[in-house]
Design a protein around this nucleic acid. Structure first.
Lengths: 157, 157
DNA sequence: TAACCTGGTTTTATAATGCAACTACACAAG
DNA sequence: CTTGTGTAGTTGCATTATAAAACCAGGTTA
């Protein structure tokens, strides 16, 4: 078997996420979707990737429950791709990627945009990992415990 | 040009990060490095990837300033791969990936470990994006402004 | 109805990935 | 000093994924 070894079924949740999001285009498609793009052609023009690849990626994202196909909002007979809650949940990952580049990129002058809060127009704070009682945690302050995390009941949107 | 289109030089900092971290193995290698692995053989056994691939990935991570080759800590003539500050900076990205899986994975019971704070043993809080004055921001509360972010002066370690 | 746009599929070429076999060096034992 | 074992790769070849370009079908527009 030479296929690109799948990480599906891995125990590590990082590997599980990467199995879904870890290819070259998926995260960029989701980024564009968060910026409001929804049509096949919009994605294709914005990302500049081949249409056959985009077809496959979009289908995969729909299959995994990250995007959803809905009738076009403008009343035409076409369809649009919109994010599901699971898709919106990717937002912090994109923020983390953005902030890593902002902090460590070797040529930061090449970065074209800064993320600011809409109300004040000021750059946002760095994502920080905190304990439940509010202490800031570095990677040395955490450890892994066996067993699946209990999932908070999610509101029904 | 048929090569896997490089995102190098993109304006979007997310694309820039993905250009470095966006392949199947790099983030998993960094994850392992954060867990204390440092030798070629350790990575290879842990990840189960082909040695030629590992060679290429490690070299790329060293070239990009994420890993560093240092003389082995046990006094042998071999070398070890250790994370640079830039490498440690990837930690929040891995946390975000982990938390996305914890929250949205379709089969959460397959997740093997939970991240807890070492001191209290309790699960950590979700990463939250905040404005400089402390308001929690959702993706709808932010916007992009043109121009590179100013980078905070970093301590000289 | 003809031209055009949208959202694809097909074809074909090249680059990345994976396995297995092989090599080079370090170190340890006999 | 020779043989054996472990580490850290390299090389060769098969298979897959990715890409560019051509093609196409249904909806929309003129």
């Amino acid at each position: 078997m030479v296929k690109r070894t799948s990480l599906e079924g891995a125990e590590c949740p990082i590997a599980r996420s990467l199995d879904v999001l870890g290819d070259w285009w998926s995260l960029l498609i989701i980024r564009d979707a968060l910026m409001g793009r929804r049509r096949f052609g919009e994605f294709q023009k914005s990302l500049g990737l081949a249409k056959n690849i985009l077809t496959v990626r979009l289908r995969a994202l729909v299959d995994r429950g990250i995007l959803e196909l809905v009738p076009a909002s403008d009343g035409s007979a076409y369809q649009e791709y919109v994010l599901t809650p699971k898709g919106f949940g990717v937002f912090p990952i994109l923020v983390a990627l953005r902030q890593w580049s902002e902090e460590f990129d070797d040529h930061p002058e090449g970065i074209g945009t800064t993320m600011v809060d809409r109300e004040k127009g000021k750059p946002v704070k760095k994502l920080a990992l905190c304990s439940q009682d509010g202490r800031r945690l570095s990677f040395a302050d955490i450890t892994l415990k066996r067993g699946a995390p209990k999932r908070a009941k999610r509101a029904v949107a």
